[in-house]
Design a protein around this nucleic acid. Structure first.
Lengths: 221, 221
DNA sequence: GCATATTTGTCCGTATGTATA
DNA sequence: CTATACATACGGACAAATATG
């Protein structure tokens, strides 16, 4: 080792770096990630890169084929359906049993406000981020760090799905108002109504994503 | 490589092996796992072992301290509370929205039957396993592979908590009948009643585990 | 408080099996 | 079928951090 700083652990940082590239769409889904190539690009050893690969594979962002290498995960319709099933279970229940004064409600409010703001200025990428933050806050209502961590992981996978689709306005714009309505019900002390609204939201969002996905597959392949 | 078989990947197998040792209570919680020692014991290289460590750390079974090594996770009361919060969210909802003819119901039935059988013969360790299988089957009712995988992971952590406690009969015996009652409600086409019974089950189980845990801490420390 | 031994973090080189051109 | 490229796994090396006397 010539001159290294040793600030924080290398491997998690490496995993974060690759994760960012993935959700930014820097790699094509299904693309193989060559170890030597990435080692050169990121200036790390093969062992370190492989350890980072393991973490991302466990996150579902990479797919590992024995003796063939790692590939960028290709979200398919089964994944989308699976993810939305999970969201219905977790988010709806967390919302239903939530206390209206829970600190996460304030984060939901902030997310809705930013989404409204950014959608007015047409910054759909930020709207998408605020949308994700809103639903992460819903999960936080359940007060389980493990559940929240799990949701964060799945959210990254969902972002990968979104990255496959092109039109971010079409994907996020219709849901700003629905989120606001869900939040209003909760703030008004009607968690059951909020949960019902969320159920409808998720059903509609799933249909939209699946439809967009189908269109892509028809055009692309 | 001198003479190896290369059937399946080494690292996941390694992780499974260590995981089994962990939930079997072969290592004390908080104990440091020395890399050289385990390398010698398991006959693997340091690099392979370290990759397995990463996986188990992500599962929450090991804790990593920079430049100090990996330690067996020490479940505390906060973890237990967190895990039961998560179980209430996921299991109750999965049960509530379940179809009584779902294939996982058959697995629930098998788990209840084996638990009854083994509790009659006093094999409390097997009763515990059947109990875990029962609740894993409940999660499978939601038909989300991601959710089921997540639950499997948390279940391993919960088993680590159980391993801290001694009296397995006290820990599992009272719940065999409750599981049977939950299943009966579901099979009778009353998922809401089943979910309510599960809610009561989880509340009681959490109290039992927390109480046993408190006793341990008072005696042990 | 200091010197030393142990252990981790990181990287390299290499041998072998496997997939693909 | 051969050749190439690559993944898998091993062992060794050295710096940095920690633990020990």
């Amino acid at each position: 080792m010539t001159s290294r700083e040793m600030t924080t652990a290398l491997v998690p940082r490496l995993a974060d770096e690759i994760r960012d590239k993935l959700i930014a769409g820097e790699f094509q889904p299904g693309q193989r990630l060559s170890e030597p190539a990435l080692c050169a690009e990121l200036q790390v050893s093969r062992n370190s890169l492989r350890e980072a690969f393991r973490l991302l594979t466990k996150d579902g962002l990479l797919r590992h084929e024995p003796n063939r290498g790692v590939f960028v995960a290709t979200p398919d319709m089964a994944s989308i359906i699976d993810i939305y099933r999970m969201r219905r279970i977790i988010e709806c229940r967390a919302l239903e049993q939530a206390h209206p004064k829970h600190p996460a409600v304030a984060r939901m409010r902030r997310a809705v406000d930013t989404a409204l703001e950014r959608s007015a200025s047409g910054d759909w990428r930020s709207v998408g981020s605020a949308n994700m933050a809103f639903h992460a806050a819903i999960v936080d209502l359940a007060d389980s760090t493990r559940l929240s961590a799990f949701y964060t992981q799945i959210a990254a996978e969902l972002r990968l799905c979104f990255g496959l689709l092109d039109d971010p306005e079409f994907l996020h714009a219709p849901y700003v108002d629905q989120n606001a309505a869900i939040l209003a019900e909760l703030e008004a002390g009607r968690p059951a109504a909020a949960a019902a609204a969320l159920e409808a939201y998720l059903a509609r969002s799933e249909r939209t994503v699946l439809a967009a996905f189908t269109r892509i597959r028809e055009n692309g392949a």
